[in-house]
Computed example of a mutant assay.
Amino acid sequence: MTEPASARRITGAGIVLVFVYGVMALAATGRSFVQIVREFDDAPLAYGLSAAAAVVYILATLALMFSRSRAWYRIAWIAVIFELVGVLVVGTLSIVLPELFQHPTVWSLYGSGYVWIPLVLPFCGIWWLRTHRPAAVPELAAAAR
């Protein structure tokens, strides 16, 4: 049976959000791959963080796409919160202790190399997750009564 368009999980802003997360996943993956292959010994911390950011963006993209299920919804929350903490911590450290980040990462300077999308994106993800909770599973709702 085909699901009605009104019951689809991702529409409108959700499609844009997943698209932007996907673009960030590709960009961060490409950047970290090139950095690690070419010059990992120059800045293992920075390039390792770029790789971690890539994994987070890939996970967030998938979790947002499948967030209709409660498990993926939780994973989406974890990924988006991890992303927010990462960009805030790395962004702050790259200003306060620039010697740690002489080589840029995805999250350096709060994502300035990516037009601050890494700083704004987790707030958009949090908003979307708060306004699009998955529907309760009928069997679990009946069992809770």
Rank of each mutant, 00 (worst) to 15 (best):
A63Q: 00
G14F: 04
L45P: 02
V55S: 03
V23W: 08
D42P: 01
Q35H: 13
F33I: 05
G22V: 02
G30L: 08
F33R: 05
S67G: 15
I36Q: 08
G14I: 05
V18S: 00
D42Y: 12
Q35E: 15
A27F: 12
T29E: 05
A46D: 05
A60Y: 03
I15M: 14
T11G: 11
F33G: 02
A46C: 09
L62C: 08
V55T: 08
L59G: 09
A60V: 04
G22M: 00
R9P: 08
F19N: 01
V20M: 09
M24W: 09
R9W: 14
G14E: 03
R9H: 15
S50A: 14
A5S: 13
D42A: 14
A27W: 11
L26K: 01
V18R: 01
R38H: 12
L17D: 08
Y21L: 13
L59F: 10
D42W: 12
G48V: 03
V56F: 04
L17Y: 03
A53W: 07
P44L: 09
I10D: 09
V18H: 05
I58D: 04
A25L: 06
Y57V: 00
F33Q: 04
V37P: 03
V34W: 13
L64Q: 04
I10E: 11
G12A: 09
T11C: 03
P44R: 09
Y21D: 06
V20R: 06
G12S: 10
A27Y: 13
R8I: 06
A7H: 15
F40N: 01
L62T: 08
A25Y: 01
P44C: 08
F66R: 10
V34T: 14
A25N: 07
R8F: 13
T61S: 10
S32C: 09
A52R: 07
L62V: 13
S32H: 04
A60I: 04
A51G: 09
I36W: 03
F19D: 02
R38E: 14
L49I: 14
L49P: 03
D42G: 08
M65Q: 11
S67V: 04
R31D: 10
Y21S: 06
G12D: 10
F40G: 08
A46L: 07
G14C: 09
V55L: 14
R8H: 15
V56S: 01
S6N: 12
T61Q: 03
